[in-house]
Design a binder for these strands. Sequence first.
DNA 1: AAATAATTGTCAAGCGTTTATCAATTTGAT
DNA 2: ATCAAATTGATAAACGCTTGACAATTATTT
Lengths: 327, 327
Amino acid sequence: MAKLADVAALAGVSVTTVSRVINNYGSLSEKTKQKVHDAMRELNYAPNTNARSLQGKGTNLVGIIFPGVANPFYGDIVQTLENKLFERGYRVILCNSVNNADKEREYVRMLMANQVDGIISGTHNMTIEEYQRISAPLVSFDRFIADGIPIVSSDNFTGGQVATQGLVRAGAKNIWMFSGANRPQSPTNKRLSGYSEVMQESGLAEHVLALPFRMDADLKWAQIKTTLKNARPDGIFCSDDLTALMVLEVAKQLKIAVPDDLRVVGYDGSQMIQNYFPELATVTQPINSMCALMVDLLIKQIEKSDDKIEMNYELPVQLHAGRTLLG
Amino acid sequence: MAKLADVAALAGVSVTTVSRVINNYGSLSEKTKQKVHDAMRELNYAPNTNARSLQGKGTNLVGIIFPGVANPFYGDIVQTLENKLFERGYRVILCNSVNNADKEREYVRMLMANQVDGIISGTHNMTIEEYQRISAPLVSFDRFIADGIPIVSSDNFTGGQVATQGLVRAGAKNIWMFSGANRPQSPTNKRLSGYSEVMQESGLAEHVLALPFRMDADLKWAQIKTTLKNARPDGIFCSDDLTALMVLEVAKQLKIAVPDDLRVVGYDGSQMIQNYFPELATVTQPINSMCALMVDLLIKQIEKSDDKIEMNYELPVQLHAGRTLLG
DNA sequence: AAATAATTGTCAAGCGTTTATCAATTTGAT
DNA sequence: ATCAAATTGATAAACGCTTGACAATTATTT
């Protein structure tokens, strides 16, 4: 790679001058600016980020920690975050935590060692103290991480409500919730609360089947099958779309008619689901807005903006009433 | 962040000594090694990667350029690559090229500026000359990029053959291929060749509908619908699984019975599809092996191993004969 | 106790860039 | 032509770490 001195030599100016045009300080004539820019272009020069970082300039790197990008919902989020960060001049170091605390710890260490300017985290496997010790700006997706770290999420409680209300209004009585793992700070808990509230108001009995995020797919399939066969629910609210799709598949296998005998509502509404399964009723999270907000909050912190930052943003959800709910 | 000098102070040794234990050279007693390690742990120290990189040590960073991670197939690949690289001590800078040449160019610049140790690329939007000018080790997924750059792919031609053969054997006569964009170096071309060959051998007429990767989903839906209605195919080979799923959805809407009146075979076989749509017949690519190989080839180059590297690896595919093909 | 080997320290240069300081040169205005 | 202002250059220190050279200190052996 070409270095500063090479550019200076080619442009016939001093390194100081080149540095001045790059960092835009001191006084410079248009002519030399032009010469330097030409030289940079000709050499395809880009300043060594590592050297700049040593000088106290930022790295323009942001770490993104999510359970895993193979899941289309997280994939959608990560891609959207990456796009928005790219537009604002930041690059992304990808961390697939797989919900593994040690791996996450190692990631955070590494991100610090690489002097990232900030971190966006969609997991929460470490202790609060560990998060607090992180010096870089931080934004959390969907979960409480530690005091002072802003959280961006969709309105999970309302989401749980509208999904359940949809099922109730459609006439379902034996309504189950297939929830993710009910770990303490998990967003599914609020969805569950929304479900519970509506069920109680409607005088219906609650039934919950917990299907942890990382559960083996075959086991998950088996549990769903058993539940459909034995409990014969006529409405199911799944806390994510993939589970909802699996329910539909199992129902098809069992020849249970959807939506006549069983109505299904999912949660997430990633682009892929909307594109390829428009018939699936689901609670769509505003992925684009959430990502824009996360990026915004992070950059505000990085650039030490004076704008006041709230600690909790709950963005509104929408019920997409597909065929699996209303036919 | 703690720095070298802090560790040295805490351990009560010189910075040279600390550097010696980190980089493992010179002679050291067990006792001081221990002291230093303790101090590093206590301070949660990690050497500043940027400073090390300036010294000529690698960054342990690898750039991964793929069209976008919201697509579950690429998501699966990126996640698998990331996992394997993590195991080998490398971290990932994520680049969603969105098949945009300018963006890809900018990414490459940035990756060079960040001194990445290597790049794995699943796109090919720049010119051959531009790729050749990249000094970092490179591995390509599924496409020819430039001479001297190893390619890892699945056996696309055979994949096209077995999918088509499956449809022929199942008794389909009016067999269509729904292909991705037929850009020059695209992997779908070989799948198409495999399709063509089998169709010709079987004395059947070929029909191809091109549905570019980035086509708007509604438009894609419309085109599929029109084709199903007008041409009434009884067998469709889709060059990716998502398209196959959309075909199934459209067929359902049109009340076309699968597999009785229409048999469908996809391509890719990502984990998500296998888990959530086991009934979809598809040609599964060996994602895990491909990723392992890519990582291996990249690291061999980075570490200047003497092992000879081939330029073209075509890994075997498997026909997963799900219900949409055989019932 | 002396000789040798092993361990640790001190010092300095260097990686590519930034930035401050001061000096030199060019430009523009009168 | 003169003077101030604008532009450019030369130099050096700093960022955190690595590494070589060499000196100083310990430990081990005889």
